Simulated assay, not measured.
Amino acid sequence: MIVGVPKEIKEREYRVGITPAGARTLIEDGHQVVIEKGAGLGSGLTDEQYLAVGAQLEPSAARVYEQAELVVKVKEPLPTEYELLQPEQILFTFLHLAAAPELTDLLLKKRITGIAYETVQHDDGTLPLLQPMSEVAGRMSIQVGAHFLQKEHGGKGVLLAGAPGVRPGRVVVLGAGTVGSNAVRIAVGMGADVTVLDIDPARLAVLDDHYGNHILTLISNSQNIEDEVSRADLVIGAVLIPGGRTPQLVPEPLVAQMSPGSVIIDVAVDQGGCIATTRPTSHDEPVYLDHGVLHYGVANMPGAVCQTSTFALTNSTLPYIQQLARLGVQQALKANTVLRRGLNVFAGQVRHHAVADALNLPYQS
């Protein structure tokens, strides 16, 4: 199979879909790897490294898309890439279709097989391809929040660790999954006053057992959310519905109750966000003020730490890419139920129920 890897074009996105080591593995398996020139440079991977393992370099994304049977990316195609996608191609990347009706429509019209990293799912509900990026984003969220809480960056001037005789900053984490758990880890390490909310008592119990009296765990309901968010210095949105649109847990009037200079980091923004006032931003303009609260809505946070993120992601995606290339899409999906759960669109039909529900489209099982 011909595996194509175009350069990512999302603003400040420096990750790449396959490393030279991954390309070598696929080539040793008997496949052809076609990669756009410069695709790995942002992650410190040179064209020479790809050439050395036998990959074919192409000068443009158009040349990659023209040849590829399987396109491997990191982020969803942007409008300028829509025309490059070939009918009935296989696309393996983060898609986040619940928040992207135009992209969904294009994939359906071109009868593209779209397999989304974020919905590949084990029997126990874990998300093996989303998890490494969620771990990175969760850890980054506290680092980024601490930065923007500084007065010179628009925040109220709070140090999360506090100081002798001065209370630490209050961090509220909405969601105790992978993003939330990693945010809690860093916030506790920085000495913040941490509260985490979730609807699942079992998840809260895990965090409570691990951190004890260093955190407060609360069941997520409107009363607890209102009580905690209204007095928070930093709120982390860490809610996930696999494949579906994120529920809005923090309404606009509650954001208005937060003190000026507080910070919201909505990691769920690429699925619609869990804060009513959140909208997508970019690494070039990451924040904006709404009701005096600083909002950060960068949808590709891990792209800022691209060397860590590229290797963490591709370590997890490569075995699935190998299986797709070896068996072809239909046999691979039949053989691997974990991968099959990642299927979002196929042959002009929506094949993931959460995507169908979010976009009010027919679902084909």
Results as ranks from 00 to 15, higher is better:
residue 8 E to G: 03
residue 10 K to S: 04
residue 19 T to C: 04
residue 20 P to S: 10
residue 23 A to N: 13
residue 28 E to V: 04
residue 30 G to M: 04
residue 31 H to F: 03
residue 37 K to D: 14
residue 39 A to N: 06
residue 41 L to D: 14
residue 51 L to T: 15
residue 53 V to H: 08
residue 54 G to E: 02
residue 55 A to V: 09
residue 55 A to K: 10
residue 62 A to V: 12
residue 72 V to H: 01
residue 74 V to G: 01
residue 74 V to I: 15
residue 80 T to R: 15
residue 85 L to R: 08
residue 96 H to L: 09
residue 96 H to K: 09
residue 98 A to V: 11
residue 101 P to S: 03
residue 102 E to P: 08
residue 111 R to Y: 10
residue 113 T to E: 06
residue 117 Y to V: 07
residue 118 E to D: 13
residue 119 T to N: 12
residue 128 P to L: 01
residue 134 S to Y: 02
residue 139 R to D: 05
residue 140 M to K: 08
residue 148 F to N: 00
residue 149 L to E: 05
residue 153 H to N: 14
residue 165 G to P: 05
residue 173 V to H: 01
residue 180 G to M: 05
residue 186 I to H: 03
residue 187 A to H: 07
residue 189 G to T: 11
residue 191 G to N: 11
residue 193 D to L: 13
residue 197 L to I: 06
residue 200 D to W: 05
residue 201 P to R: 09
residue 204 L to M: 01
residue 207 L to T: 10
residue 209 D to V: 12
residue 214 H to T: 10
residue 214 H to V: 06
residue 215 I to T: 05
residue 228 E to M: 12
residue 233 D to I: 03
residue 235 V to A: 04
residue 236 I to D: 04
residue 238 A to G: 00
residue 239 V to E: 09
residue 245 R to L: 13
residue 252 E to K: 10
residue 266 D to I: 02
residue 267 V to G: 00
residue 274 C to E: 09
residue 278 T to A: 14
residue 282 S to Y: 10
residue 286 P to Y: 09
residue 290 D to T: 14
residue 294 L to Q: 00
residue 300 N to Q: 03
residue 300 N to T: 07
residue 301 M to A: 11
residue 305 V to W: 02
residue 305 V to R: 08
residue 308 T to G: 08
residue 309 S to T: 10
residue 310 T to S: 10
residue 317 T to F: 03
residue 323 Q to K: 15
residue 327 L to Y: 15
residue 328 G to H: 06
residue 345 V to H: 03
residue 348 G to N: 09
residue 352 H to T: 05
residue 358 A to T: 09
residue 358 A to V: 12
residue 360 N to P: 08
residue 360 N to R: 07
residue 360 N to Q: 13
